[in-house]
């Protein structure tokens, strides 16, 4: 597959846009999942993944053929997402008082925790719960966790994508994994 992708990239470099279509189709899930794990919102994840592919297309000439394409693509995606997180200011706080109410805050607007009977809904809830726990981690742990568990990237690849030493990657994975173990042990 990797060689097939390389062939397609050569065509894209020559300006053939239709060759890019297969590249997108092949990588879209992983890129989307990495973005989602980092930003925690499906709409924004899709938006960022799209942006990542467009950037990859525009800057395809700066891609070095001797390296793995997915690594290069993931770096674009993570950088974009981390940038977005930095710029993003929370637009509402759960603690803030809801306008026009007397002392009610956003917590009171949340639905009560109820266990749904359908298994599917239940697993979806678990997934949402997992993502919420991931979101509670600082961005630097989240990015390592996202890359490690979405595409099972090696520690060396993660260090390359995030441009941090491999030792740091290890420490962050250990700490992130340990933190999530504590949070997810009751799931």
């Amino acid at each position: 597959m990797e060689t097939k992708i390389k062939e397609k990239i050569k065509l894209v470099k020559k300006g053939d846009q239709s060759a890019f279509e297969e590249i997108v189709a092949f990588h879209q899930s992983k890129v989307y999942q990495i973005c989602y794990r980092l930003i925690g919102n499906t709409h924004e994840a899709e938006d960022l993944a799209q942006e990542a592919f467009i950037r990859a297309y525009v800057n395809i000439h700066s891609y070095d053929d001797n390296r793995k394409f997915s690594t290069w693509l993931y770096r674009i995606a993570t950088n974009l997402t981390i940038d977005r997180i930095r710029k993003k200011k929370p637009d509402y706080y759960l603690d803030a008082e809801v306008q026009g109410t007397d002392g009610l805050n956003m917590y009171s607007q949340l639905p009560a925790d109820q266990v749904q009977p359908e298994e599917e809904v239940e697993s979806l809830e678990i997934q949402t719960y997992i993502q919420n726990e991931i979101m509670a981690l600082p961005t630097k742990y989240r990015s390592v966790i996202a890359l490690r568990f979405v595409d099972e990237l090696s520690l060396a690849e993660i260090s390359d994508i995030l441009n941090i030493p491999i030792g740091t990657v290890k420490t962050r994975i250990h700490r992130g994994r340990e933190a999530l173990r504590k949070r997810l042990r009751h799931v």
Partner: peptide
Amino acid sequence: ELKRTITLLESNSHLQPSPNFTNKVINSL
């Protein structure tokens, strides 16, 4: 617990972009 956490983190097949994702990208190039 650690192994279970990893299994939970790796179960992300339900996370998929919308079906017309590729088209959207190609159209905005």
